[in-house]
Design a protein around this nucleic acid. Structure first.
Lengths: 204, 204
DNA sequence: GGAGTTATTATACACCTGGATAATAGCGGC
DNA sequence: GCCGCTATTATCCAGGTGTATAATAACTCC
């Protein structure tokens, strides 16, 4: 019985593959289904290799969580253009694929459920949440100024908390039960809701 | 070595204890930390007893999920009084203890993360979500009529989706990072936001 | 108070878990 | 082409997993 042949991957690449395989396993089998062996199978390597790239399974899980947060926040916080476009894009991006899909919410929930258990994950969560909300707060500040109704930090903070809650809530609903809504319905509801919350039309 | 003495509990009571112990373990150690043995220790019995009350661990988990949903929805959907009071209470109840606490959100997230994996849990989730949203939709319908601005089912549905999203989103934020908000701040933001969304003052 | 019922304990089993270790295959430098 | 380095594989380990089974303690009924 001869030994399996294999490919020596460049350092960063294999790490990335392992993290991606971890996320695949978590979303498909849940956190407890994401075993070292299952992850290795998914990545097309043997289980022992995991420990060559990560100090422990827990460390790999933490890095996977960072990857999830980055995927959820990067697209939404890097909107560009004038404030109106940016606000519109922010809402639309968060409520359409690829941000809004069942895989994302499964991953998000799996990690959220561990925030109470694992202080490392709790820290990663808080950092991501605040970055996201602060980006939204800045965006709202720009938007209100652009519309000729500038608002102070405290007012923008309250708007950001509310709109962040609204968008997060709709995101979860849409991800978990997308078939209960018509195409584009959640985006439409979100746009109308944000207009009502701010008391301003988004367009023009 | 003699056998442990024990107490024969009435049927329903022990089932309830086991489910409660299951939820304790999930919230404290996560889904994968909620092992049959750990749950038994928490309930003060031996592991074998679990299988005397439930066909399998999975079945017990499913029943535990039903209990969680009941705890989250019962209080909020059983508000009483005139429509104004009911809407105010609905918002306040969902954003203050005991509904809004870190244990609740940990449990909720743990199960949500399994919805994609386990069709049984998915069915339980959908049922609970729709019951909750429909209760809110009825409440909004009553509220709008009471305020002299009656709205049809489609309009109420859109309001219910938005307000449900808002409240859920704020609930998650508050549970996960309650220390980032001042006392009563989330309730206050939610009240103001609902008024803006409906375009009506809640009071008077 | 003795018999019957069953909730509960105790123990065993096959399998899976994350991690440690040693052998080896692929690849870069010379 | 060969050498050295290390990424990768293959095995092993102690402990934990859900579940099955048999013995027994607690309670009910008569």
């Amino acid at each position: 019985m001869s030994r399996r042949s294999f490919h020596r991957a460049p350092e960063g690449e294999r790490r990335q593959e392992l993290i991606e395989a971890t996320l695949d396993c978590i979303s498909e089998y849940g956190l407890k289904g994401a075993t070292v062996r299952q992850i290795a199978v998914r990545a097309g390597v043997t289980a022992g290799l995991v420990r060559h790239y990560f100090d422990s399974k827990d460390q790999m899980i933490a890095e996977a969580y960072r990857a999830v947060i980055a995927a959820l926040t990067d697209k939404a916080t890097h909107v560009e253009g004038d404030p109106v476009t940016r606000l519109k894009d922010f809402i639309a991006i968060n409520l359409t694929e690829p941000v809004a899909d069942s895989r994302s919410v499964s991953l998000w929930a799996a990690f959220i459920s561990q925030v109470r258990v694992d202080p490392v994950l709790a820290a990663i969560h808080r950092e991501g949440y605040l970055a996201f909300r602060n980006a939204l707060q800045d965006l709202l500040s720009d938007f209100l100024a652009f519309k000729g109704r500038p608002a102070g930090p405290e007012e923008c903070r309250r708007y950001a908390i509310a709109i962040n809650g609204l968008v997060d809530g709709l995101w979860v609903e849409g991800c978990l039960a997308g078939d209960l809504f018509r195409e584009g319905e959640l985006v439409s509801i979100a746009m109308a809701s944000v207009e009502a919350l701010l008391g301003l039309p988004i367009e023009s």
